[in-house]
């Protein structure tokens, strides 16, 4: 799947009649069929609890669909052996509303963690982490702890970590949910600039109307787990 992600035809992410019912019976997605091409910037919108996060989790194989297929770079993620899942995830950067940083580790260590856990050496880490921090505008604060940073800065650290493996796919689940409007805008600009300009496929799940309207890009709207709108260059 790694090689396929770099040189291939067809959608980068594809949902084919995907339904997802949680074990306790909650129906999160109902017959969703969408295709997202390489380099596209897509918003998944809809109120809370309409299946946006589920859709994101299905892409990086946190969940498996109850029915249908989720294809990443043409490969069915459900068919991927367990031992290959980590390699899929190295090709997908993910950020969340709550940043998910390690509280006892510095900015540098948080970003380096993504490289250390896949066996990268110290030399590469010392070279790569400052580059990433430079890209997200945190080059001056490598020794700060997450608790010493603002929400926006913490999200920048989380973006830097997500970019550590130069992923061709970037997923964001409510990345501005904990941020004020100005900071949200900065973060979205950062995502657009740093990630989208490199040809990365970006999928952002959000219910931030102002953001979606301002970005004016493709919008997929979910309601009751179904796709009710799929419009290019649209607003919320």
């Amino acid at each position: 799947m790694d090689d396929e992600m770099t040189a291939r035809d067809g959608p980068m992410v594809e949902f084919e009649h995907v339904s997802m019912v949680y074990p306790e019976g909650t129906e999160a997605l109902d017959d969703v069929t969408v295709a997202i091409d390489e380099g596209e910037f897509v918003f998944i919108v809809g109120p809370t609890g309409e299946g946006k996060s589920t859709l994101i989790k299905l892409i990086y194989r946190e969940l498996l669909p109850t029915m249908g297929r989720v294809l990443v770079a043409g490969g069915d993620v459900a068919a991927l052996p367990l031992r290959k899942v980590p390699y899929l995830r190295r090709r997908i950067g993910v950020v969340f509303q709550d940043f998910r940083l390690l509280p006892h580790q510095t900015v540098f260590q948080n970003v380096a963690f993504a490289l250390r856990v896949v066996g990268e050496g110290g030399r590469k880490i010392r070279r790569r982490v400052p580059e990433l921090l430079e890209q997200v505008g945190l080059a001056q604060r490598p020794d700060a702890l997450p608790s010493q940073l603002s929400g926006g800065e913490q999200q920048r650290v989380s973006i830097a970590r997500a970019l550590a493996h130069e992923p061709p796919i970037f997923l964001a689940d409510e990345p501005t949910g904990n941020l004020d409007p100005d900071t949200s805008w900065e973060i979205m600009q950062l995502i657009a600039r740093v990630i989208a300009e490199r040809g990365t496929t970006v999928i952002v799940a959000t219910h931030d109307k102002l953001m979606v309207d301002a970005m004016h890009t493709r919008v997929i709207e979910l309601s009751n787990g179904r796709v009710v709108r799929d419009a290019p260059e649209a607003g919320y």
Binding site: P86, R89, V117, H165
Partner: peptide, 17 residues
Amino acid sequence: RREISIMQMVGATSTYV
């Protein structure tokens, strides 16, 4: 568990976890 979930999210293999 938080650290482990982050490790899994960024692509650590089971051996590393």
